[in-house]
């Protein structure tokens, strides 16, 4: 199952995408724990794409492609912004950066997903979550 969507730079539209994906994950039988992880990473990545990438510009779009299987969730999010170098983001866990808002979202995406990678000029991110194997099987 692969789904492609294009949304405006609008956080309300992003929320609707998150809800659609959450419902699909539930239907596929993902655990609450995995769904929380994916939802959080999606929230951070979409907010980044809309606010930092597209700068909330209503003429710019966010392109989303995702697939859900019994084993894994994959998503690619592309914005129309200038991109960035993830290595330039200051370490948000350093004392001097604690009150800065940037970087924490990226840290959470990496913490909650199995794999996170930025591509090209940094306006494309792919994320993967390999599903937790239930103990009962």
């Amino acid at each position: 199952m692969a789904v492609e969507l294009t949304i405006a730079s609008d956080l309300g539209e992003a929320r609707r995408v998150q809800e659609t994906i959450e419902a699909a994950l539930q239907t596929t039988g993902y655990s609450e724990h995995d769904i929380f992880a994916i939802k959080l990473a999606l929230e951070e990545a979409l907010v980044n794409a809309i606010k930092h990438g597209n700068q909330m510009d209503p003429d710019k779009r966010v392109f989303i492609a995702y697939s859900i299987t019994a084993e894994r969730f994959d998503i690619r999010i592309t914005d129309e912004g200038a991109g960035f170098n993830p290595d330039d983001v200051p370490d948000p866990t350093a004392i001097e950066n604690l009150e800065r808002p940037c970087g924490r979202g990226l840290l959470l995406m990496r913490g909650f997903m199995t794999h996170v990678e930025y591509h090209g000029k940094g306006n494309v991110v792919t994320m993967t979550k390999i599903r937790d194997v239930p103990n009962s099987e």
Partner: peptide, 16 residues
């Protein structure tokens, strides 16, 4: 039930 990175900054400021 759910909280994103955007809320964390406020908690740090409150702590300070």
């Amino acid at each position: 039930e759910f909280l994103s990175s955007a809320a964390l900054g406020k908690l740090i400021t409150l702590h300070r």
